[in-house]
């Protein structure tokens, strides 16, 4: 009796991309950013951000893995025995990461060589597993997917901001290694500003090697957290 009753209740039709989905997608970009607010996934954010192009590839990979692992986990969430749920999540993540790795090896070999270790380390990226445990295990597939994509984007956004700063000041270029490569400031004539040119106003300038080191990423992320907190009242502790 109870069962039939439940079936008769007509659920209000929800739009495919309603308020909830928008919030899921937007929140990780600012109010609940995985790196600057939750301080997750910092390890890879320090390591890969010395240049924009590898960071971009890394960001795309994490968006893909995060989105689809949330989707897959959510699809089978009611079938997963709780005793082995972590293992199941890990297998799903590892599968997707391996797919990313094989794809890069097949289509973008040079970048694969540059990122090998870090692509594998997406498996242990706390953001991915964190979203599965916190969201996908308890929500419907579509919303979980959007949540995963949102968190991947939040991570990727910080990665790109840090990488742009580090590459400009550390190497004097942007998107080096990709077809979009821009040479901005350096010591040879093919740079936009050639510091070695005669009568150049930038003769004093030298690339800052500290920016290439992982430590620079930590300072930049720290400053980003500071800026974000001073602008976003929601993040300030009122205690």
């Amino acid at each position: 009796m109870a069962e039939t009753l439940e079936k008769n209740v007509v659920e209000p039709k929800e739009p495919l991309f309603g308020k909830v989905e928008k919030k899921l997608l937007k929140d990780p970009l600012n109010d609940n950013n995985p790196i600057t607010v939750q301080v997750l996934g910092v390890c890879s954010a320090l390591a890969v951000t010395s240049m924009v192009y590898p960071s971009f590839v890394m960001a795309v990979a994490v968006v893909f893995v995060c989105g689809f692992s949330s989707l897959l986990t959510s699809l089978v969430r009611n079938k997963i025995p709780p005793q082995v749920r972590m293992i199941v999540q890990l297998v799903i993540i590892a599968t997707l990461v391996t797919i990313v790795e094989l794809t890069l090896k097949r289509f973008q070999y040079p970048i694969y060589r540059q990122l090998t270790v870090y692509i594998g380390l997406i498996i242990t990226n706390c953001i991915v597993m964190g979203r599965l445990e916190a969201f996908a295990m308890a929500n419907k597939p579509w919303r979980s997917f959007v949540d995963g994509i949102g968190n991947g984007l939040g991570y990727g956004a910080i990665l790109l901001i840090v990488a742009v700063i580090r590459e400009i000041f550390g190497k004097g270029s942007l998107f080096a290694g990709s077809p979009l490569e821009m040479k901005l400031i350096g010591t040879t004539p093919d740079y936009f500003i050639n510091t070695m040119a005669e009568g150049s106003w930038f003769g004093w300038y030298a690339n800052n090697n500290l920016m290439v080191l992982p430590a620079a990423a930590m300072f930049i992320i720290g400053v980003l957290i500071w800026i974000q907190r001073s602008y976003n009242p929601k993040l300030v502790d009122i205690s």
Binding site: K79, I80, P81, V84, I87, V88, V91, T95, T98, L102
Partner: peptide, 20 residues
């Protein structure tokens, strides 16, 4: 059930990855 679930899942994963 647990063994069955894990077995099916890992087989599927192995198939997809080795195929790729």
């Amino acid at each position: 059930y647990i063994f069955g679930f894990v077995f099916i899942m890992t087989s599927l994963v192995a198939l997809v990855l080795s195929g790729l």
